[in-house]
Computed example of a mutant assay.
Amino acid sequence: MLVDGVERFADRNREATTGDATRHPEFEIARWSVTHLTPDERAAATVYTSGEHCPMCAAAHAWVGLGRIVYVASAKQITVWRAGLGGTPSPVAALPISAVAPYLAVEGPVEGLVDEVRVLIERQRPSR
């Protein structure tokens, strides 16, 4: 997450190592920001992520008042890639951020980087 051009927080998925499906970095950013940023700083923040926020993370982002989201690959793209690898469907619908939090500023997908995220998804072992 950047605030005034300065990286203030970075994280990664912890689902596989903890077994906790709620340990998304986007959710951790929301939690961290409430403790460490003022409401104005949260509103001015930009969150960059490789994949579009899931509904849980989009809601958390909106509830704490974080600013703009920039993502590389859409939830729909990631869902298609994982299905093609034989993965188990997510128990949560792959909704666009705008369907969950319609007032957030959102940019994505970032076409020049989508193939890099697809390769990362393909390297993961599909869950069965």
Rank of each mutant, 00 (worst) to 15 (best):
A59E: 14
A58H: 02
K76C: 06
G19D: 04
D11E: 02
W81N: 02
A45F: 05
E28I: 03
T38F: 04
G65R: 00
A93S: 09
Y48T: 03
G84K: 12
V92G: 00
A75E: 08
P25T: 04
T35A: 14
R68V: 07
Y48P: 02
H24Q: 11
F9V: 00
G19C: 00
A30V: 06
H36R: 09
R68I: 02
S90G: 06
S98C: 05
N13D: 12
T79L: 08
T88R: 14
V34M: 06
A60I: 04
Y103H: 14
P102C: 09
G108C: 05
D11Y: 01
R14T: 02
Y48C: 07
T35I: 10
E52D: 08
R82N: 13
F9M: 04
R8Q: 13
A99I: 03
T22G: 09
D40A: 15
P89T: 06
D40T: 15
W63S: 15
L104W: 10
V92Q: 07
A75K: 05
I29M: 15
C54F: 02
R23W: 00
A45G: 08
V92N: 08
A58L: 09
V92S: 03
P25L: 03
I69C: 01
V100I: 15
R82G: 10
P89F: 03
C54T: 08
Q77W: 14
W32H: 08
G67W: 04
Y103M: 12
V106Y: 05
I69F: 01
T49R: 00
P25K: 06
G108W: 09
A101N: 12
N13L: 09
H61D: 04
R68F: 03
R23T: 06
T17D: 12
A10K: 12
W63R: 15
R42K: 02
Y103C: 08
A94F: 01
P96C: 04
G112N: 08
T46M: 11
H24N: 09
V64S: 11
A83V: 09
G51D: 11
A75T: 03
S50W: 10
T49F: 00
T22H: 07
W32I: 11
H36S: 06
I69N: 02
T46I: 15
T46F: 13
G84E: 13
V70T: 12
C57G: 12
V64R: 08
V106T: 09
V80L: 10
K76G: 11
W81R: 07
G51K: 13
F9S: 00
S98L: 12
P89V: 00
H36C: 01
Q77L: 14
T17A: 10
D20I: 12
E15T: 11
V106S: 04
A94K: 00
H24F: 10
C57E: 10
A73W: 05
G86A: 14
W32V: 08
S33K: 06
D20G: 06
C57L: 00
G112T: 10
A94C: 02
E28C: 03
L113S: 10
Y103Q: 15
A44C: 07
A30N: 05
S98K: 14
A21V: 14
A60Q: 13
L85E: 10
P39C: 10
A83E: 14
R68K: 15
V100N: 02
P109E: 04
E107T: 15
A105V: 13
R14P: 02
F9G: 01
V47N: 11
A83C: 12
V92E: 11
